Simulated scan of single mutants.
Amino acid sequence: MRVVMFGYQTWGQKTLQTLIDSRHEVVGVVTHPASDQVYESIWADSVEDLAREHELEVHLARRPDAILRKQIHAWNPDIIIANNWRTWLPPEIFAHPPHGTLNLHDSLLPKFTGFSPIAWALISGAEEVGLTAHRMDGELDTGDILTQASIPIGPRDTATQLVRDTIDLIPTVLLEALDSIEYGTARWRPQDLRERTFFHKRHETDSLIDWSWEASDLDRLIRAMSDPYPNAFTYYRGERISITEAHVSQGIYGGTPGRVFIRENDGMAIVAGPNAHRGRNHALVVDRLRTSDGTDYAALKYFPSGGGYLTSGP
C-alpha cells in the first residue's frame, strides 16, 4: 500500500523504520520541527533525519494547515499511519485516504487515553501497559481498535524501561494491522468509552512528592519519573532534592509524613502515608538522591542520621 507517515520522536522514528523495512511504499513523511521542550527532548530520535537518509519526501509542520492538506492530496496515499503526532488532525486529512488513518497509541485503550500514558499507568498502579492500533476519528484516541499488544508491569520496572518495551512492540502491532487492512480481514472493535480514562500532560508540579501518599504510591511515582525524565522531587532544609531510587520499607513507621526518620539497611526511611500518626504505614526508604547541582548521593551519605523533614517547598 501507499503510506504517508505522521510521527515524531523515537516513536515516530521506529514506526517509519518499520514501514521502510516493509513491503509498503512510503510516499511521504510529516513530522514536527525539533523542540527543546523537556518531554520532547528525551526520546528525540529524528523522524526527519531518517526520512531524508532514505530520500523520502518530508513535510515539517507544527499543526495541519492548507498547505499540508494540499500535500496529502498530491501524495495520494492508501492509508495514513500516525504515531506521536502532537496536534489534532482534521477529517479532511485523517479521512482522506481510502483506508483512513491508523493511529498507534502507547496504552491499552480505552485506558490511559491522552498524554504520558506509560508514566500515568505506572503511577496509578496498573498491572500492564501496551500498544494499540486504532482508527483515527474526530476525538482523541477514541476510534475503533484493530490490534493491541500488552506488557506486564514488573514490581521494579521504571517508566524508562516500559517505554522501551512498548516501542519494541511497534513492528508487530503495525504490520499485523496493515496486513489485515490490505487483505480485508480487519476486525475493528468499538471502544467502550465508559471504560475510558483520560490523563493530562505531565507538568513539573506533578512530580512534587506528597508525603501523605502511601509509600507504595510514592515508590511508583519515583519509578515513573526515572532518568531521563524529570525526577520526583522534594525539599530538605531549603534545598530541592530529586529522589532517584527508593523502595517500600520492611518495617512500619509512625509519626508525621515527611519525617527523615531512621536508617533501614542501606537507605533512609521517610515517614509516609495518610494515617502515619496511627503507626500503621510502611515508610518510603530512599536509596539514592540528586541535589540541585546534579550531584548524586547514596541516601546515607546525604542523610547520615535521622532528623528534619522533607517538605513541599523551600
Rank of each mutant, 00 (worst) to 15 (best):
W88R: 06
Y229S: 03
W120I: 08
E182L: 08
L102N: 03
S22L: 01
I123W: 09
Y297E: 03
S116Q: 09
D157T: 10
D192V: 11
K70C: 00
A66T: 06
P257R: 02
E176G: 08
D266I: 09
I270C: 06
L289F: 03
W120C: 08
Y253D: 05
H282D: 00
P90L: 09
I79N: 01
W43A: 06
W188F: 14
Y183L: 13
H247D: 09
A186W: 04
A119E: 14
A149K: 13
D266Y: 13
D296T: 01
T166N: 15
V260D: 03
K301L: 07
L50N: 02
V58F: 02
N231A: 15
R288K: 14
F112S: 02
G130E: 09
V4M: 01
K301T: 13
G238R: 11
D106K: 11
I270Q: 03
K201A: 15
T31A: 04
D137Y: 11
M268R: 03
A149C: 10
G28N: 00
R278H: 06
Y297D: 02
H277D: 05
E245L: 07
K14S: 00
D137G: 13
G154Q: 14
V47E: 00
S249D: 08
P314Q: 07
D144E: 15
I145H: 12
S207I: 13
I241A: 07
G238E: 13
I118Y: 10
Q9L: 08
P90T: 08
E176H: 10
I79L: 15
